Computed example of a mutant assay.
Amino acid sequence: MKAERRPHAASNVSLALRAWNIRRKALLMGEVQGQGYIGQALGIADVLAASYFHALEYRPEDPEWEGRDRFLLSIGHYAIALYAVLMEAGILPEEELETYGMDDSRMPMSGMASYTPGMEITGGSLGHGLGIAVGMALGMKRKRSPAFVYNLMSDGELGEGSTWEAVMSAVQWKLDNLICLVDFNDQQADGKSTAALAQGREEDKWAAFGWHAQRIDGNDLVAVVAAFDAAREAPEGQPRVIIFDTRMCKGVDFLESREITHFVRVEPDEWSKALTVLEEGKPQ
C-alpha cells in the first residue's frame, strides 16, 4: 500500500467546502442548459470531494501522468458532477463552465473520454464500467504500477449481468488495486432500484463473491473518508467495494423534499433559487 499522500491532499480547504463547491458548479452548469442530472450530482458531491481531495493520486497539470490513479465514470450521465470536480481539482479551467453542453464544448452532457481531460472512459452503456476497470486494473498489475483504479457506478448497474461477470473476474485475478464505488440513491430509469433487482444487503452479495465490502452513508464525509482509507488498507489480493447510500438533491432542501425520480426537473426560475439555498448552507 502507498504510505504517502499527494501534496494537495493536505490542503487547508475543507472537504465540506470542496463538496459545496462541486454542488455549486453543477448547479451553474445545469442553469446554462436548463437541465442535467442535477439530483445525482448534488447527491454524489461528498463522494467526489473525498475521491479527488483525499484518496486519489493525480497531477492537475498533467491529466495523462502515467502514475495517476484512474477514476472511471461508468455512469456517463453523471458527467455534470465529474466536470464540477475536475474544475475544482484544477484539471478543467473553470471559465469553461458556461460552455457545458454547447457545440464544440469539451463538456458534453454525457461524458466522452475523447473530449474531456480527466475523463478516463466514455461511460453510458450502463453495466460496462466495471468490466473496463477490471481490464485496466489487471493491465496495471502486470506493469507493476502502484496506482489504483476507482470505478464509480450506479445502483441500477447492479442489475446488469456484465457487472457480476466483472465482479467474479476481479476476484479471480486478485485485483486489490481496484476500488468500486457504488452510488446507491435508489433511483433508476424505471423507478426505484430496490423495486427492481437491487433488493437489499448488496454489501453481503459482494462479500460473498470475495470482495472487501463496506456500506455507508455517502453524505457523511467523516464516514466517506474512513471508508476510502479502509478500502486502501484492505487485505492484499482482495478487490474492494464501497456502497454509498446517497440522497438525491442533497444540499437544496426544496428539491430534496419533492418526489424524487431518476431525472429531477428544475424549472427555469428554480436554478437561482437553488443557488441561493445552497449559499445559505455554505460551510465555513
Rank of each mutant, 00 (worst) to 15 (best):
Y83K: 05
E202D: 14
L92P: 04
T261Y: 12
K25E: 02
A26F: 00
M112L: 13
W173A: 10
A81I: 00
E279M: 07
A234W: 04
G34S: 07
F263E: 13
S154E: 05
K250F: 13
S11M: 05
M136H: 12
A84V: 00
A274R: 01
G30Q: 00
F184E: 12
A166I: 07
K250G: 09
D176Q: 11
P63V: 11
E233I: 10
T194A: 11
E279V: 05
H128W: 07
M153W: 04
A50T: 04
L126M: 10
E120N: 12
E270Y: 02
P146H: 08
L73H: 01
S257P: 13
E98G: 12
L86W: 00
V241R: 12
A213Y: 01
F209Y: 11
K273Y: 06
A231F: 07
I260G: 08
I179K: 10
W206K: 12
V224W: 00
I91N: 09
G237Y: 07
L86C: 07
R144T: 05
D62M: 10
D104L: 09
L178D: 06
E94R: 14
F209V: 05
R5N: 15
W206P: 05
V167W: 08
N21W: 02
E280V: 03
S125L: 08
M168Y: 07
E120I: 02
I121G: 12
Y100Q: 06
D220M: 03
L255N: 11
N21Q: 13
A196I: 03
A196F: 11
Y115R: 14
T246E: 13
I121H: 08
K2G: 11
G36Q: 02
S114C: 11
L221S: 05
K25W: 01
E95Q: 10
M112T: 06
H77G: 06
M119I: 09
L278N: 00
M168N: 13
G218E: 01
A213D: 02
S105L: 03
A207R: 15
E96H: 14
R106W: 04
L181M: 13
A227K: 06
D176T: 09
G210V: 00
H54P: 10
P7D: 09
V241Y: 09
T99H: 08
G200N: 08
A230W: 03
M87N: 06
A41V: 00
A89R: 11
E280Q: 14
R70V: 01
P93E: 15
V222M: 07
A147L: 00
